[in-house]
Design a protein around this nucleic acid. Sequence first.
DNA 1: TTGGTCGCGATATGCAGATT
DNA 2: AATCTGCATATCGCGACCAA
Length: 233
Amino acid sequence: MIFASPLITGTLVQRYKRFLADVILDDGNAITSSVPNTGSMLGLTDPGIKVWLSYSNDLKRKYPHTLQLVEVGGHIVGINTGLPNRIAEEAILAGLIPPLAGYTTLKREQRYGANSRIDILLSDEGRPSAFVEVKNVHFSRKPGLAEFPDSPTARGAKHLDELGNMVEIGHRGVMLYVIQRGDCDNLKICGDLDPVYAAAFQRAMRRGVEAYAVKCHITPSGIAAVRTMPIID
DNA sequence: TTGGTCGCGATATGCAGATT
DNA sequence: AATCTGCATATCGCGACCAA
């Protein structure tokens, strides 16, 4: 995934109202940027950190800048929650995730279950379809270890249950965690910030849901999936 | 059939207003 | 006074719809 145009650098002043951030660009201009991430972004919104923004020429937009990357502890972290689906799609098509390789058809945003949508549906003649739910990970408290979730996510737990339902009727249910930072080599499902999710994860594993984590290489010019990484307890 | 436009849903959480 | 409900907020992408 290559950014359409070179990103602009600046310094974060504050993030507020979920969708907005005030940034002082390196050229001195103070602007308001949209933030394509409604999560808590724990540890990624400290005032004064370096940030990268994209710029859109779309006249319908209220704020043409979009926050894409932040620098934390000397490492670049991607915060755009719209990108992991694209990254995951690229990774699957490139065969970087062996258990998901070789399907002839890949569709995004397919309806299924109780009024839910699956991020990616892989199908093929002669073998079960794979329902792939993509999750964005950008939280890390320990060097080398990414963690999910960074705040309670009821929706995430619901997705795990529905993937379990898909397994029961003969499909594959897959959780795919896209780690949008290059400094991690393991993923941990952490129970302290959302015990409900951790329990749902264990329950889903027992029901046969698969889980994979994808390591990414992040630079100001783009984000690329590299390989899978272990999910540890 | 294709291309463009419109509107809805998803997204998370603080806050204001309403209800008990 | 405490609790609950629903709006605010910006963008994206898809489905539905209309027009050529």
